[in-house]
Amino acid sequence: MTSAKVMARPGGRPTRLARLSDILPPQWRRSDAFISLLLMAPAFLFIAVMLFASVSTLVLVSFRELTDPGAPVAYTLSNYLALFSPEGDIYRALLLRSLWIPLLTTVAVILVAYPFAYILAFHVHRYKAVWLILVTIPFWISYFLRVASWKVILGENGVVNSFLAWLGVIDHPLEFLLYNMGAVVIVLTHSWLVFAILPIYVSLEKIDRSFLEAAKDLGDGSMQVFLRVTLPLSLPGVFSSAILIFVRAAGDYVTPSLFGGISGTMIGNLIVSLFTAEDNAPMAAAVSVFLMLALVIVVCAVALLYWLWKKWRANL
């Protein structure tokens, strides 16, 4: 049926002014595809318009030859070949590091955040909103200031070392607290903590308490209730925050450049440097595409695992 026919229904008397949706065929109005596309349209258009240019040109430029100004533009595979050449060892190693450090960070964040979110969701009954906001307040303080504090905490004459010395545990300050991979993981973990606490809290909060009571009535111990009911139902929150944290941490370059020392530099630092100091946009683009592909693969793999797990549970 075409829209014109809908408007001029033979014999039908218009009882009210035609609404915008009335001009659409009814099967559209009720179709999932149409409604969902309509709902997603604003966000999709916004992102597409803002990022279409950057992504397409990024890919295009990654195939461009590095030429002097004025020279004609030529296309080549050499940027990608360089990634796999012997001199490209730095790209490959830093890429691995940029997957490894965020992985450690993500695991650490989830492990630390989950119990907190759990207590907030199930055991705190008053001032819940206050708690939620209290959790975010430390992050209203500029990152640059938090970084300065971390240096004071982990520094040679810093809080941790002074405390340990006061306890008599150490007589020399621990130097390994700063400027290595561990320091990057610590600082990143703290920075992203709130991004796990809130989503996990949100998905724990929605769990119907009667499920838990029912499981208890069936004789499950608290641990079993947790493993069989609570944890699985909270996994959407865990996964979405894990993906967020992993992807964002992989692209970070400020924390590694301030805390990473030699073992903690990441590929984000290299992209920035290639793009600006080295003035090699094609290579920067190729490395970015490389990083993006790696992230997409990891995220897809996690999503696949999640999907398989869900299926397996459903069959149980």
Binding site: S54, V55, L58, I271, V272, S288, V296
Partner: peptide, 10 residues
């Protein structure tokens, strides 16, 4: 998810 994956400087 694209905005998350693209490096910020780009």
């Amino acid at each position: 998810m694209l905005p998350l994956i693209l490096p910020t400087i780009i």
